[in-house]
Design a protein around this nucleic acid. Structure first.
Length: 780
DNA sequence: CCCTACCCAG
């Protein structure tokens, strides 16, 4: 409990800092500082110089030497030395200024470049073009365009810069306008507009342009072929390849990659053998292709035979071992490789994180010399996955403080963390930031956002997000369907499923799990049966064990236990723990102790540590009055050393998480809460509520004292919610275990008495309580 | 200065 409280305060801190914007060091200031410190040396240099050649002015050839020195320093990333040279020059040509501008730009010091540009006395065409390309690289197209329009004269370089600026930022039509207006076009212009179409997925227009003339360069052929490969149109790619007048290594590599990444390794291998030149790319592509198809030994053979390896080749091989969960071998290679880049570290971190070894992952994360967005995403996802959502979110905040640019994947990972701890408020803040960054309608991020709202219990907002996703993919649809299903809105789930089909998206196996569970959570037995038996015929989906489990659940809940058992006997695989779990659940609802015992026995065998099963079974015994068996279960649980998971509930009020456990005495408002519960208890009894204390044993959090039932964590949390959340707004409570029957019953009454919408997420699903009933239809 | 290989996210 105390730990949970501490956690809540950490989370509060995290909220308050998350707004703080990143504080960059003012670069202009450092420029001034350097200038100040260099002024004396300028004087000494000048005077020495003047003393030597008093009569002759500085010759042009000498200026050239200074300029070359600036360029050399810049190339070695020594911007300050370059500036010192620049400042100490007795006379500067426009080339000197341009050397500074281009040097700053290539060292990613955009603001300094701009400062020099603005101070350049006689800007020539090169200065303008440099600055233009600077704006373009910075993604500031508005500024680029206004600079472009201001230019006293433009050459083909200026036009090309503007063209590629538009193209690379997705403004294909603007790019085309520039292209059409250009007075002269060179090869780069033609390639630029072709690439604009290809990179933005407008492959048909690219093809039309391509076929409109014949004198294309190899680069252009490669570009279009690459476009086909990315869209998995291998036949088109191959056609192009066969038509090519000249092929270079890239042409070969592109096609080999196409085959290798789409599982056609024999064809890839054939081309590999045929290829006149094999470079690091070719070899690495083969290694990676085998890895992606699970052919680890073959991959290793190629890896060992490679004449020259670089970091990427090592990383591909390491990734192979990571995917096969051979972290030991992966680590060996990682230690053995001569140079490691960020990806090498990221690969290892991901491997450890996904294998649940978060301490190794964190260790590497802390040790790595430089981190990028992917490193952060990997470690954040790692914590989120093992249920440490708070640590994950803390890291997200830390990442922002470290100045890491928020990219799509770090958002996605953090949203997932929000979803796991049901931090709706923080999730909403992230949503706001996403809108600002313009990411929110993308598929990956949109789906993560959608999932976050579903898991945080805000199903209406989830639907809004869903509608806003520009190009919904299967995952978007699946997430929405499963979301509705978990909330008990079966009809809505099926409606989404129907419109998914009308839009022309093919359902996959995950879709059908969502559809079937929607049916089972809503009691739509016939509909579910129909879907189940038509899956194969209508969508070519073979039922897997999850589908069977849904069906057994569906039939079992409806009391058709014989049919459920029949189906289980006839299914083409051995029932797993989840399948038996469905049987046990159904037995409990319908009081079939014998079947329940059998199911529980099977589950104990498969998952001896599953504490939830002990509880379910002892409840089953209790329901049929077999008290001896109940105490036997208790003993068995103690002897087998199964750890009971302590139950707790939590809710977010004004950016702060409040956690409650049974009979909680730690909350600052405990007296008000308890008094309010007493009051509620009376009203509930008047409303017809009967405490089920004596009849049923509830979950693990309650065991010895019956009166504790009254103070179950979810009741405390709901009471606190009513007291602190303004009327009219829903109360969202989360619980780490399944809601107990008595609480479920009580909350139904409370929703009616208080006229509030109460949304409870338990470990299994959502319950929307309002007006005295629950969206699960008492069927959970 | 347009084309190819490795690591993250639903």
């Amino acid at each position: 409990m105390l730990k949970a409280m501490r956690g809540s305060y950490r989370l509060r801190q995290l909220h308050s800092t998350s707004h703080r914007s990143l504080h960059n060091e003012p670069i202009n200031k450092s420029l001034q500082n350097i200038r100040k410190t260099t002024t004396p040396s300028k004087k000494t240099l000048n005077s020495r110089h003047d003393a030597k050649n008093k009569k002759s002015p500085i010759s042009d050839s000498e200026i050239v030497k200074w300029n070359m020195s600036i360029t050399a320093h810049m190339r070695n990333c020594q911007c300050e030395s370059a500036l010192r040279v620049f400042n100490s020059m007795p006379r500067r040509s426009s080339v000197s200024y341009n050397a500074m501008i281009s040097g700053y730009l290539s060292n990613d010091k955009f603001d300094l470049a701009r400062e020099v540009f603005e101070k350049t006395p006689n800007r020539d065409l090169v200065s303008w073009n440099l600055m233009l390309s600077g704006f373009v690289r910075n993604g500031n197209l508005g500024a680029a365009r206004s600079l472009f329009d201001q230019m006293p004269e433009r050459d083909v370089v200026s036009w090309n810069a503007m063209l590629s600026g538009y193209a690379q930022n997705g403004y294909v039509d603007e790019a085309r306008k520039i292209f059409d207006r250009m007075p002269d076009k060179n090869v780069i212009s033609w390639n630029g507009i072709l690439a604009a179409y290809v990179q933005n997925g407008r492959i048909e227009e690219a093809r039309n342009l391509f076929e409109s003339k014949t004198d294309w360069e190899v680069v252009s052929w490669n570009c279009l072929m690459g476009g086909y490969v990315k869209r998995k149109r291998l036949v088109d790619a191959r056609c192009l390849f066969d038509r090519m007048p000249i092929r270079d290594e890239i042409s070969w590599n592109t096609l080999i990659t196409g085959y290798a990444q789409n599982g056609e390794l024999l064809e890839a291998r054939r081309l590999f053998d045929e290829s006149p030149t094999r470079d690091v790319f070719t070899w690495t592509t083969m290694v990676s292709g085998y890895v992606q198809n699970g052919m680890l030994d073959e991959a290793r053979r190629f890896f060992d035979e490679m004449p020259k390896k670089n970091e990427v080749s090592w990383n591909a091989m390491i990734a192979g071992y990571v995917q096969c969960k051979r972290m030991d071998i992966a680590r060996e290679l990682f230690e053995a490789m001569p140079y490691r880049n960020i990806s090498s570290w990221n690969t290892m971190i991901t491997g450890y994180a996904q294998g649940g070894d978060i301490s190794q992952a964190r260790n590497l994360f802390d040790r790595m010399p430089r981190r990028d967005g992917i490193s952060w995403a990997a470690i954040i996802a790692g914590y989120a996955q093992i249920g440490q959502g708070e640590e994950a979110l803390q890291l997200f905040v830390k990442m922002k403080r470290d100045g890491e640019r928020l990219n799509r994947s770090s958002f996605t990972c953090s949203l997932r963390a929000c979803a796991d701890v049901a931090a709706l408020e923080l999730g909403k803040q992230l949503h706001g930031q996403l809108v600002k960054a313009g990411y929110e309608t993308g598929c990956y991020v949109g789906n993560a956002l959608l999932a976050m709202y579903c898991k945080c219990g805000d199903i209406d907002e989830a639907y809004d997000v869903f509608e806003d996703i520009a190009e919904k993919d299967v995952v978007s649809w699946n997430t929405m369907i499963a979301g509705y299903a978990r909330h008990g809105f079966g009809k809505e789930a099926l409606m989404v499923f129907e419109s998914m089909k009308t839009v022309g998206i093919n359902p996959d196996d995950v879709t059908m799990v969502g559809v079937l569970s929607a049916c089972s959570h809503t009691g739509l037995v016939d509909k579910g049966t129909q879907y189940f038996y038509s899956m194969d015929r209508d969508y070519g989906i073979t039922a897997n064990s999850k589908h069977y489990t849904c069906m057994i659940d569906l039939l079992g809940r409806a009391g058709r236990l014989d049919e459920a058992q029949n189906l289980m006997r006839n299914m083409p695989f051995e029932p797993d723990a989840a399948t038996w779990g469905a049987v046990l659940g159904a037995s409990r609802i319908h009081g079939n102790t014998e079947l329940g015992e059998k199911a529980a026995e099977m589950i104990f065998e498969m998952e001896p540590d599953n504490a939830g099963m002990y509880v379910l079974l002892s409840n089953l015994y209790a329901a049929s009055g077999r008290w001896v068996d109940v105490s036997k279960m208790r003993l068995k649980m103690r002897d087998s050393g199964v750890k009971k998971v302590p139950g707790y509930s939590w809710l977010e009020v004004q950016n702060m998480i409040h956690t409650f456990s049974v009979g909680d005495h730690f909350h600052p408002d405990r007296e008000k809460i308890y008094a309010f519960l007493e009051e509620l208890d009376l009203k509930m009894k008047l409303d017809g509520y009967v405490s089920s204390t004596k009849l049923v044993l509830h979950d693990v959090e309650e065991e010895e004292k019956e009166h504790m039932l009254k103070y179950h964590s979810e009741k405390l949390a709901v009471a606190f919610g009513i007291l602190s959340i303004p009327a009219g707004r829903p109360i969202r409570v989360m619980k780490n275990l399944r809601v107990c029957e008595d609480c479920h019953n009580a909350i139904k009454h409370i929703s009616k008495i208080e006229g509030r919408l109460i949304i409870l997420r338990d470990s299994h699903r959502f319950h929307h309580f309002s007006g005295g009933s629950c969206s699960c239809g008492d069927y959970w």
